[in-house]
Design a protein around this nucleic acid. Structure first.
Length: 152
DNA sequence: GCCAACGTTGGC
DNA sequence: GCCAACGTTGGC
């Protein structure tokens, strides 16, 4: 069982959107490091912190779960999709994504500000300068700490 | 395989 | 909307 943090801009896809949809294919990731996490390291049952970026407030809004391991991301094959990649083919789809679901919103948003000021969370990747990865591994203790802060 | 130019991310 | 940091692209 592993733990992750998924960033999303709520204007594009928020935790409320995920709750309404029940589950969602996390398509559109076009960064190899993030893809490799999904393709190689994620399994059904892994737990995810759902993080809203580029908004106010910024922070972790709740959790969700990997419900299906990585499958080819077919938006890369669709010329009409904003995520189209001309180098992707059905034989070599290039991009993969997992399906997530079971979104649970926190009672209290754990803001980026709060994460910054918590000494226990000082090693979280999301605090690292220039860290732009939209999918990041999270330690079990950091995951549980965030859930604790979110459920107060 | 170097690296400049360019595009994107994301906090502020 | 700014801009630092970073990833990708493509000419050489």
């Amino acid at each position: 069982m592993r733990y992750w943090l998924f960033k999303s801009e709520p204007s594009t896809f928020s935790i409320d959107d995920l709750q309404k949809a029940k589950s969602a294919f996390w398509d559109g990731v076009r960064n190899y490091q993030a893809r490799n996490f999904m393709m190689n390291d994620m399994q059904a049952g892994d737990k995810i912190l759902f993080y809203h970026s580029n908004t106010t407030p910024i922070g972790v809004f709740g959790t969700c779960v990997v419900i299906e391991s990585a499958q080819p991301d077919e938006t890369a094959l669709d010329p009409k999709s904003p995520y189209f990649d001309e180098k992707a083919t059905p034989e070599n789809p290039r991009w993969f994504a997992v399906t997530v679901g079971n979104a649970v919103k926190f009672k209290h948003i754990v803001t980026l500000e709060e994460i910054k000021t918590d000494p226990q969370l000082k090693d979280m990747l999301v605090l690292k300068k220039g860290q732009r990865l939209s999918i990041q591994p999270v330690s079990k203790t950091d995951f549980e700490r965030i859930v604790f802060l979110g459920s107060r």
